[in-house]
Design a protein around this nucleic acid. Sequence first.
DNA 1: CTTGACCCTAAAGTCAGCTTAAAGGTTATG
DNA 2: CATAACCTTTAAGCTGACTTTAGGGTCAAG
Lengths: 135, 135
Amino acid sequence: MQTLSIGELAERSGVASQAIRYYEKEKLMPAPQRTDANYRRYPLDAVDRLQFIVHAKHWGFSLDEIRELLILQDANGDRAQVKHIAGEKLHKIREQIKHLSRIEAVLSKTLNECVGEGPMQEGCPIIEAIAEREK
Amino acid sequence: MQTLSIGELAERSGVASQAIRYYEKEKLMPAPQRTDANYRRYPLDAVDRLQFIVHAKHWGFSLDEIRELLILQDANGDRAQVKHIAGEKLHKIREQIKHLSRIEAVLSKTLNECVGEGPMQEGCPIIEAIAEREK
DNA sequence: CTTGACCCTAAAGTCAGCTTAAAGGTTATG
DNA sequence: CATAACCTTTAAGCTGACTTTAGGGTCAAG
């Protein structure tokens, strides 16, 4: 069976060798077999696992959360647990969207109100909005 | 004129003394006058400045961005510059909302598709969504 | 057989925005 | 006048997700 050195794996997955070693230390990647010279040799499907990590990171999952998902996969775990983790993540994402939307609303409103000209001796609606806004 | 010790300022503003010293080092707060014993004495409006910082942080501005806004205020700067900084921030916030909304859409869709029962031998729509999703 | 490209480990550095600790001076209270 | 509650400084620690550095070992090409 074909195996990959860490450098080949890095190139195929787009993840730096040192990051791969870091994922191993953090238990996201299993420790691979070693050659006599103590070089890591990875099976081909290590590429998929790394890309799962990359995608999950892009989705905003932390390494801790990704580790949980991988453990469930490795253990052929319960769908309910995966759904639970994803549900919590969805909740957090919706909270973030709410928070950002509130900011977006006030900021775009004040930007419209600001003429964007002249000095600010008598105040600037943007500065004032930041200064006064509660909560 | 009444002045405040750093501890009194901390209590009135809700910002820890050490954080106030940190803001001084980072040029967000001006270095205040000192007593003979080298104690900081703040004017009352230091409370407002600190609360401006707190609010701006809550809005998602970084300390670097807040410093820029404060410099414009201190210099009685140009409204156009403030509008420019706020406009860039608004753009970044809208990008973040877009990114999160895309994730929210896919994640809530896959959560609905997942029965949330049984083991995942034959795959789980959530895991697969993460694994397969491009970009 | 040597040079350069790879691989190894462990430890330290990076970013932001602080917090905590260490070691000491000052001031208010009983 | 002692002691607790302030204040001072500098330096180190924290989180997350790595990257960089230091100091070696290994391997393929010429």
